[in-house]
Write a protein that binds this DNA or RNA. Structure first.
Length: 562
RNA sequence: AACCCGGUGGUGUAAUGGUAACACAUCAGAUUUUGGUUCUGAUUUUCCAGGUUCGAGUCCUGGCCGGGUUACCA
């Protein structure tokens, strides 16, 4: 599972590359690329592609390019370009000097289009959008040839040049490949190569008013960059014949397209379109909302790049439709943070405790271990005094059998401090517990009983007068269903499965004072509660923490059983 | 519907014609100054039917089921 170890198992993509190296298909070269369209933010599904492409390049001593697939000016923006570069770097990958844009190749791609026209493999079609669709036929019936299919090379070249020159309005003409209107692949029935769009492009401005389509751009871009293995997701499998057709028709370097399965996760969704809908519909607070699986969201939530890389390596690469359990992702961040995160005490839902036999004005500094998994993390001092806060869930007046924590007459350990026994429960007029009274055993200082007696539970606590009050945001699954698309009746859609409790804010959690020094992004384990990180909303003394993930919790499972 | 691709425990991934395995999840237990961590054990698997073979999860044929595609998006 560790990412440094060389995996014994070779997934099918690596097996293909092994074979290519053996047969010297590419003269020993391995060159991949990660080709995002800058029309949205990257999510953990993209992380799989990034790790695969950059990872393979690294393993084989090859190269991986970052290339923006920016052929549709209507949807693409610089904002996305910048965020994508930032996310790829954050994940831990480096494209060195190989930052490219498909739009850099527009001139070459245009010249190749003229070449195809001259070779009688492309023509300008002046049918309208609906007519083109209609003419394409259907799965059961072949399409019919466009009346413009037999235009002369001269007329095609003239028309195409005038398209480029801006003589025609949007939609007046398109350039189509001349393949076969009866082909069994609908995609091969004279696909569109160029469309007229009088739209400003985020990089080329108004230089172009005709833009090439994905199919007529992607393989050519790969070819120009000398890519050997063009790795993409399964939904492009159908496009491979076209990819191959263009490379062959042009007679240019012809990379091999390989398709792998995309990552799906339970209780969330990866669709760019739906993520956009969540953001624009204000169902979440932006692209970096810690509840959505964008890389920025996960980052803000407290996920480390290491944990995401390890997770992605764990899920593997196949051609199966696969949905990973969210708990597997959560286990990876737990595993990472268990080793690295220092422990602190934080009471999320405070209940006042008075140690009645503890001196009024006394304060003691207790020694606390920072990380039991890492001796080099050292220790810290935690102030202890007569009035404390403990977790409200750690006390029950009338506990069930398997409840080990504090209840009347029961003795528990306060971590790194003393054994205490509950002597009294104080309630308000409505019967709400307002505070509890305990006595402590001075002989148990530090948390060990010299007489060897045991307690069943250890509680975290914070000294009331030393406590740092902070806002803590508790996150849960974005959706209540494993599969957000599962709805009880057809009038409902996936949004009806949004979890109304995916964010619960604790405005006044009580934290141990050492946390006041924590910086934005810093991660801790709040003992017994989970892993937390300092949110970017932190302003001076007003600190905000995000819960990355809870600790595994046997007691909550016990409770769920009823 | 057509075309393309897939079906191995609950989930994901191995086994590359030779004993079906690993991880997570679930359950039970041990250890524990976190009901965390760690450790031990248990439960549960080759879609179906034929064929080839000494031998099939793997190869072949036919079915069944699931997904993708059928855009002037990528």
């Amino acid at each position: 599972m560790t990412e440094s170890s060389v995996p014994a198992h070779r997934d099918f993509v690596r097996q293909i590359i092994d074979e290519d190296l053996k047969t010297e298909k590419w003269a020993g070269r391995v060159h991949t690329r990660f080709p995002p369209e800058p029309n949205g933010y990257l999510h953990i599904g993209h992380a799989k592609s990034i790790c695969l492409n950059f990872g393979i390049a690294k393993e084989y001593g090859g190269k991986c390019n970052l290339r923006f697939d920016d052929t549709n000016p209507e949807k693409e923006e610089v904002e996305y370009v910048d965020s994508i570069m930032d996310d790829v770097r954050w994940l831990g990958f480096d494209w060195e000097d190989r930052l490219f844009y498909a739009s850099d190749y527009f001139e070459q791609i245009y010249q190749w289009a003229e070449q195809l026209i001259r070779d009688d493999k492309a023509y300008v079609c002046s049918l309208g959008l609906e007519e083109i669709r209609g003419g394409r036929g259907s799965a059961s019936e072949p399409g019919v040839d466009s009346p413009y299919r037999s235009r002369s090379v001269e007329e095609n070249i003239d028309l195409f040049r005038r398209m480029r020159a801006g003589e025609f309005p949007d939609g007046a003409h398109v350039l189509r490949a001349k393949i076969d209107m009866a082909h069994k692949h609908m995609l091969m029935r004279d696909p569109i190569m160029y469309r007229i769009r009088h739209t400003e492009h985020h990089r080329t401005g108004h230089k172009w008013c005709i833009y090439p389509t994905y199919d007529y751009t992607h393989g050519q871009s790969d070819s120009i960059e000398g890519i050997t293995h063009s790795i993409c997701t399964l939904e492009f499998e159908n496009h491979r014949p076209l990819y191959d057709w263009y490379c062959d028709a042009l007679g240019i370097h012809h990379p091999q397209q390989i398709e792998f399965n995309r990552l799906n996760l339970t209780y969330t969704m990866m669709s760019k379109r739906r993520l956009l809908e969540l953001v624009q519909g204000k169902h979440v607070h932006g692209w970096d909302d810690p509840r959505i699986p964008t890389l920025r969201g996960l980052r803000r939530r407290g996920y480390t790049p290491e944990s995401i890389r390890a997770f992605v390596a764990y899920v593997g690469v196949t051609k199966n439709n696969a949905t990973m359990d969210m708990c597997v992702l959560e286990n990876h961040i737990r595993e990472d943070l268990n080793k690295r995160a220092e422990r602190r005490m934080g009471v999320l839902n405070p209940l006042k405790v008075v140690i009645t036999n503890y001196p009024e004005d006394q304060t003691e500094e207790m020694d606390a271990v920072n990380n039991p998994e890492d001796a080099t993390a050292g220790t810290r001092k935690v102030p202890f005094s007569r009035e404390l806060y403990i977790e409200r869930d750690d006390f029950m007046e009338d506990p069930p059998k398997k409840f080990f924590r504090l209840s009347p007459g029961k003795e528990v350990r306060l971590r790194w401090a003393y054994f205490v026994t509950c002597s009294n429960v104080v309630k308000d007029a409505s019967g709400q517990i307002t505070e509890i009274h305990c006595t402590y055993d001075p002989a148990t200082k530090g948390g060990d009983a010299p007489d060897g007696r045991k307690v069943k539970a250890t509680l975290h606590w914070v000294s009331a007068k030393h406590a740092l009050q902070a806002e803590v945001r508790l996150y849960d699954h974005l959706f209540v269903k494993e599969d957000p698309d599962e709805v009880s009746d057809a009038s409902l859609d996936w949004k009806s499965n949004l979890n109304p409790n995916s964010l619960i804010v604790q405005p006044a959690a009580m934290l141990e004072p050492s946390l006041g020094l924590a910086k934005t992004g810093e991660r801790f384990q709040f003992e017994r509660m989970g892993y937390f990180c300092v949110d970017s909303d932190t302003q001076g003394a007003h600190m905000v923490f995000n819960r990355t993930v809870t600790l595994k919790d046997q007691w909550s499972k016990e409770q769920a059983k009823g």
